[in-house]
């Protein structure tokens, strides 16, 4: 069970266990991370599950698809380490992943 740490804008930290194959967004919503709105439910269609991946982890994720990259250009405060969490599928290799949740999605 890969464990993820969400660091919210106010510094609150939540550790949550996910299941391999599950999206990081689904883990966030199930863990009560309210700043992950995920309005479209995980289709890369709304850009409201945006996070900044911790610098130590960004190179361990496969790069975003063309669609995700285009959506990321439209989020608040897009950065090199921006990802839409609905597009990150949990694997055992992601055990320990740290994500910084922005204060707002729009």
């Amino acid at each position: 069970m890969p464990r993820i740490t969400f660091v919210e804008a106010d510094g609150r930290t939540t550790e949550a266990d996910g299941v391999v194959g599950q999206s990081v967004m689904a883990v966030a919503v199930a863990s009560g991370i309210e700043a992950i709105l995920a309005e479209c439910g995980g289709a890369c269609a709304c850009g409201t599950c945006h996070c900044h991946v911790d610098a130590a982890w960004i190179d361990r994720l496969s790069p975003p698809s063309e669609t995700e990259a285009a959506m990321i250009e439209c989020v608040v405060d897009p950065r090199q380490e921006s990802r839409l969490t609905c597009q990150i599928r949990l694997t055992d290799a992601l055990d320990g992943l740290v994500l910084h949740v922005p204060a707002t999605q729009y």
Binding site: G41, A43, A45, Y106
Partner: peptide, 10 residues
């Protein structure tokens, strides 16, 4: 929701 999530919601 999904791929058809309202484009004009904002």
């Amino acid at each position: 929701g999904g791929a058809h999530f309202c484009l004009g919601n904002h």
